[in-house]
Amino acid sequence: MSQFLQFLFIGLGNGAVYAMIGMGLVAIYRATGLLNFAQGEMAMFATFFVWTLDDVGLPLWLAVIGGMVGGGVVGALTYQVVVRPVGDPHQKPLAVVIVTVGLFLAFNALAQLIWGTDQRPLDPLFGTGELQLGSTYIAWQKLGALAVLGIEAALFYVLFMKTKLGLSMRAVASNPESSGLCGVPVSRILLFGWALASAVGAVAGAFMAPNSAVDANLMQVPLIFAFAAITLGGFDSFVGAVVGGLAIGVLTDVVPKYVGFVEKMPTAPAFLAILVVLLIRPQGLFGSTRVVRV
């Protein structure tokens, strides 16, 4: 039992990271209507900013903030230069896929060019200690990830529901034309959405990296988990991203331990989740049914 609890918390801790990436994906989906297949690579890029600042000597938490800012700038630039000229994703899905694939390859290669192919270690924000509950040991880092996710979710809630900027973002997500007619600077709002998504990616990377290292492959598998999270939760729901992320995290870490058949295939539960949800209930748990129209 205590082993199950341990797996559970590892799953929840990892799931928190998928939820963080997922919230970035939802932000972009709501703003510009597309699935950003390059989200993981952009988050990885922002994580390299974190590493660089940490390497230079900044305290880790400050490096994370710096990485968020850097990531935000990269996200904004990407929107302005590449995404904005493409047009409506629902009318040209292939163009959007190709562009995000191109960004995937470009960011991956650019990271290797700038920082090389060595693996760069990153310390865990919450240290390597563990909390002991009876015979169960839970890493503080995993609990920290959950706490940070909670804070992020709360901040998102406040931003979107209680601020004028958030109101403008929701307006643009729902009806960009009318919002423009009401004086909302639409493309500046979309720009901010992309900046926000990449900034959040830096935080996700800061939690992902200590498990392995900061390198160009950091986010390739987590990206699928994040997509599974938002498919399950609903493409346009932040609550869905949180719930979905935690669920996928648990499924991915717990299931392979008990089902030998998928022991070496961590992506399998995520893939099944994506397939089943899209076939049976495309709007996921918390998404709106308008998501379904293609």
Partner: peptide, 29 residues
């Protein structure tokens, strides 16, 4: 709009996912 010209588009163009009050707030943004 900042110059003082407001446009009510054909088909009303209400922002359907926002509440009535939120629509008004956006109008005054």
């Amino acid at each position: 709009l900042r110059a003082g010209v407001a446009h009510v588009p054909q088909g009303r163009g209400t922002i359907v996912d926002l509440t009535v009050e939120e629509n008004l707030r956006i109008g005054g943004s």
